[in-house]
Amino acid sequence: MRIQIQIFLGTLFLVATGAILIFVGLREDERMAEFERYQKAQQIEVGAELFEINCRGCHGLRGEGIPGLAPPLNDRHFFTERLAEVGWQGSLEDYIIATVSTGRQVSTRPDKYPGAGKPAMPTWSDRFGGPLRDDQIRSIAAFIMNWEATALGEVALETLPTPETEAADPITRGRAAFETYGCVGCHTIEGISSGAVGPNLTHIASHAGERKAGMTAEAYIRESILDPAAYLVEGYDDLMPKTFADTIPADELEDLIAFLLAQE
């Protein structure tokens, strides 16, 4: 009798173990897919932070590009035509990784997007002297690729309600314009930006009035934005976009000038 009970319990255990293994096996694909989605979401989140730190100065916070500086990465053209335009045979994600890693010595569209100097886009991979690891560059590429659905109009994002809190202070608004129009990518202001393509603007208000005889600091700053080739600071090339007269609205221009005049 005891032997029969032991056989029954052993058989029951084997059946139960088999059922559990079958159940786990049936859910394995689903579990692995969920894990991959989680990993991808984490990678995109890391890429978003890296993009904001390293790329927004030239390509804009949302990848909208900055006219006269760097192209948009969040539009239909980038996702549907860019590979054919440059003759790239691989995937778009591989193209992004390669371009970010090695940078660009010259712009492929210098008439529209001359870039941030020489080279037009710096090298970012630490394998070529840049500051980013390969996994960080892959995260940036994943973040950019995550724009595809909205760039192609396949998904429309809901606009979230946000309180309207327009800054009354023109200096505060001017700092926002300094970031929005890509100035942070080329100019250093201590504590705000670290661009090295253009002159350091940390104390521009103290020096601007001395640059051109008979011109006030405000007039000089205004001319430098609207007609940057009118006066070149020694040691710097004529690389600043010539489009700001058309792309910066008058009120934002005044705010930007006010912000720069506060940099004493």
Rank of each mutant, 00 (worst) to 15 (best):
G129Y: 08
D75A: 03
V86H: 07
S224P: 00
V106G: 00
H187M: 11
E210S: 15
Y95C: 03
T247S: 09
L14R: 01
G18W: 11
N54R: 14
S139H: 10
H207Q: 07
P131Q: 08
A142K: 06
L132P: 07
G214R: 14
Y38S: 12
P199K: 02
G117A: 03
F259L: 05
P119L: 09
K212W: 02
T172R: 04
T123C: 11
Y231R: 13
K40G: 00
R82S: 12
I97R: 12
G47A: 14
H203L: 06
D134T: 15
M145T: 04
L26H: 07
C58P: 10
E210Y: 12
I192K: 06
E164S: 04
K212Y: 02
E190T: 09
P119D: 04
W124Y: 13
R62D: 15
L26A: 11
M121K: 05
Y113P: 02
I192G: 01
A208C: 10
D134E: 12
E93F: 02
A230L: 12
Y231G: 00
Q42R: 10
A120W: 03
G18M: 02
Q136V: 00
F23L: 13
F78I: 02
V106N: 13
E52W: 10
G198C: 07
P249S: 10
S107W: 13
A70E: 06
K118I: 05
A177T: 05
G103K: 08
T216P: 13
V86I: 06
A258R: 06
M215P: 05
L92T: 10
D29S: 15
D251H: 03
E49V: 14
A258W: 04
V46Y: 04
A142M: 07
V106H: 15
D29P: 11
P249Y: 09
G25Y: 01
L239A: 09
P249K: 06
S193V: 03
V15M: 15
A16I: 15
E36V: 04
I171E: 10
S139C: 08
Y38I: 06
T202C: 08
D237L: 12
G191D: 09
M121R: 08
A196Y: 02
G182V: 12
E34V: 01
I96R: 10
A167P: 09
P163F: 09
A84Y: 05
